[in-house]
């Protein structure tokens, strides 16, 4: 299995990846709490972006409603914890299951009725907005006034209940991101991955090659939704508060896709690079603005917008492909 995953990966690419991972693992040793917080933010968006990328980047179906799965993951585990004291790792499978079910329903409706392209995107918005307003009215999860997890000053890290200090959260999200990366790598190399790309490139042609496009699009949305849910679990236990207004909001969905779009849709490294650049740069900008005494709430978002505009206009495939060429990381011949 491992041998298969490594098949055809250039050796220096592997070395580079190992080096990056080593730096990230060692980061808490020399990073202060502020830097750690930013790294957590970066890894979080890299993870969520990676999950979104499966649906859009691999299978070509534009989802603008991924906040739905984040929100479901967050609310399910948080509610179980608040009401019954059930830990997040126990709640997570259920959260994933519910996300998967929602993804399956949306996918079934959309793909069975042939809703594609921008119409599919609008459908996903409709579903996530629908859920957002719905959650406003579920008192069990606090409705529009929010759901709060008990906060205390934790001195000990309790990994089982996900209660503790930033360092613990850092390693959790790092592990999630690494696992997501490996899963995506494996998917891309599998039969499913090839079929997704064929569907993304030209659906009728894919069908003529014997691909049941409905089935493979369903697989894509189900995996993508299921992988997004843990991001919500992390969100809930890291921030300790949930508001439908924020968790399900359409801007959340847009933020999820910014990383991959800027990094490179459909590439493995795109979501990661995009998250590092976007979050890293915008935090640096905010720091700079605070230093010169210009604290404005919208500055970060304007920066997001400008980044997105520039990348979409100048590098329609994102910034990863040119970097990959520079580092000579294209796939090699399996025989050599």
């Amino acid at each position: 299995m491992i041998a298969r995953l490594l098949h055809g990966v250039p050796r220096h690419a592997f070395a580079l990846l190992a080096a990056v991972l080593a730096v990230l693992v060692a980061a808490p040793v020399f990073a202060n709490d502020y830097v750690l917080t930013i790294l957590i933010l970066i890894l979080y968006s890299a993870y969520a972006g990676q999950a979104w990328n499966i649906l859009m980047g691999f299978a070509g179906q534009l989802s603008l409603g991924h906040a739905l799965y984040v929100g479901l993951g967050a609310y399910v585990t948080a509610a179980l914890y608040v009401h019954f004291g059930i830990g997040p790792w126990v709640g997570m499978p259920l959260a994933i299951l519910i996300s998967v079910a929602c993804g399956a329903i949306i996918g079934f409706l959309a793909f069975r009725f042939g809703v594609g392209g921008v119409y599919f995107a609008i459908l996903t918005i409709a579903f996530s907005e629908f859920t957002r307003i719905g959650f406003d009215h579920i008192d069990w999860v606090g409705g529009s006034s929010g759901l709060f997890l008990p906060v205390a000053n934790y001195t000990r890290n309790d990994i089982l209940l996900l209660r503790g200090q930033p360092v613990m959260f850092y390693y959790v999200i790092l592990a999630l991101t690494a696992v997501a990366f490996v899963i995506c790598h494996g998917l891309l190399r599998s039969r499913v991955g090839y079929y997704w790309q064929a569907i993304r490139e030209d659906e009728p042609a894919a069908r003529a090659l014997g691909i049941n496009t409905f089935r493979y699009k369903m697989i894509a949305i189900v995996i993508s939704a299921g992988m997004t849910a843990p991001a919500g679990v992390f969100y809930a236990f890291y921030y300790n508060n949930l508001f439908p207004e924020q968790t399900f909001f359409i801007l959340r969905s847009i933020e999820i896709m910014l990383g991959p779009v800027i990094g490179g849709v459909g590439t493995l490294f795109g979501p990661v690079i995009g998250a590092f650049l976007l979050t890293g740069l915008s935090e640096a900008l905010q720091e700079l603005l605070t230093h010169v005494g210009l604290e404005t709430p919208g500055a970060k978002r304007v920066f997001y917008g400008v980044c997105l505009l520039l990348v979409v206009m100048i590098l329609p495939n994102g910034i990863w492909p040119p970097i990959a060429r520079l580092l000579r990381l294209e796939r090699r011949d399996p025989e050599t």
Binding site: L62, V118, A121, I254, G298, G305, V306, L309, V312, P316
Partner: peptide, 22 residues
């Protein structure tokens, strides 16, 4: 492609809304 145009509009909207916010 459509999604590319869509992203562009999203970018423009983000810039306008947040400039107004500032």
């Amino acid at each position: 492609p459509e999604h590319s145009q869509f992203m562009l509009m999203v970018a423009v909207a983000i810039i306008i809304v947040n400039s107004l916010l500032i």
